[in-house]
Design a protein around this nucleic acid. Structure first.
Lengths: 193, 193
DNA sequence: TCGTATTTTCAGAAATGTCTGAAAATTCGG
DNA sequence: CCGAATTTTCAGACATTTCTGAAAATACGA
């Protein structure tokens, strides 16, 4: 690997992490190299830096593209393609989460829906369906929250994240303000917004 | 596999999903079987249901225990151990997220911290560090938000999740209420709570 | 302590995943 | 259309992971 020591450590670590995620070591390393590169790189640049075969790089780039994690740029008069990662790291994370959701969550949700439609043929199937229902409802809650939050601009998102659990203080305050005179609070005062 | 058709579909799906996550197919299937079981199961029950070797089950259970995803129960007068999953699916998801964080995020964070301490020896290292800094700060923001939210009781969490992005409406309202008379709002009115 | 039921370990077989070089395909200037 | 530069594909070599059966270890009642 022909990159400065600091970069090498970063790239190697991302290779290892890559294998703990769904992607493989090489793909992780390719993304790491592109992420810290000062300029867009062509396939052969990556071959030089990682010391792996040209075909392996080609497959790795394909994989990363299928994750929507790459941007391309072509230089006029140069036949090669140059690849880089989005500048905005928030955008990268959003894409990453979207893609993992698409691959890991959505298929599960649709299987669960299908299985919950069937009529149980035995007590054990009935019980199994009950558990599947719990799982389905939780996943649905989480994903619809995420879909909602995904729409916020980055600045808003940071504001919300920085607040952390102090957000419940704000909620309490709101509930007190909206409490009905008799003391019983309305069930869901914000639902209509 | 000797489970009712409905259960079989569920178990097979979780096997497939298991491979997309870090865990392998068998481990995914074992968890699926335990998750929908009506009662705690011993290792041989799992052998019967999945049709895999006893030693494979033993290793799978070990793996799941290292993820803190199992509860054990022993029946007096019976030498076998019986395993089951927590009843509360929220507890399961919390554990899952904790463990994935421990394995996938924390090591990265500590590598990034170490690399950010070093002095860059070249322009390309300096630039790489800048990117690492962005990544570090974002991961830190996300994990500290998570640590915060993790502390909430389930009911509070559900309340918050159900609100989705409508939460920003509440924030805006709060900001208006706390706006200083001159119109300039204080930087962080909730910080002291 | 012994004997039996049960669990764990582990070497190697089987299966799966990754990587390479060579060849095929594509792209584009001339 | 030709030919050089570049990318993609893919069969098989190589590497890693998973799985099994047999043997070892453990637990526990008698």
């Amino acid at each position: 690997m022909s990159v400065p020591p600091l970069c090498e450590a970063f790239v190697l670590h991302f290779g290892e992490m890559g294998s703990r995620w769904g992607i493989n070591r090489t793909v992780g390393q390719i993304y790491a190299v592109l992420f810290i590169a000062e300029r867009p790189l062509c396939a052969d640049d990556i071959v030089d830096r990682l010391g792996i075969s040209r075909s392996n790089v080609s497959m790795g780039l394909k994989e990363l593209q299928s994750w929507n994690l790459l941007r391309q740029r072509s230089i006029p008069g140069d036949r090669r393609e140059f690849f880089h990662t989005p500048d905005d790291i928030y955008a990268i994370v959003r894409t990453l989460v979207d893609e993992r959701k698409k691959r890991e969550i959505d298929p599960t949700l649709s299987v669960l829906r299908e299985l919950l439609m069937r009529s149980p043929e035995s007590e054990s199937e009935r019980h199994a369906q009950e558990r599947m229902r719990e799982m389905h409802d939780l996943i649905e809650l989480l994903t619809s929250w995420y879909a909602d939050v995904q729409k916020l601009e980055t600045e808003r998102l940071i504001q919300l994240l920085s607040l952390g659990s102090r957000i419940v203080k704000v909620l309490d305050m709101k509930d007190r303000l909206f409490a009905l005179p008799g003391g019983k609070r309305s069930a869901n005062p914000e639902k209509g917004n």
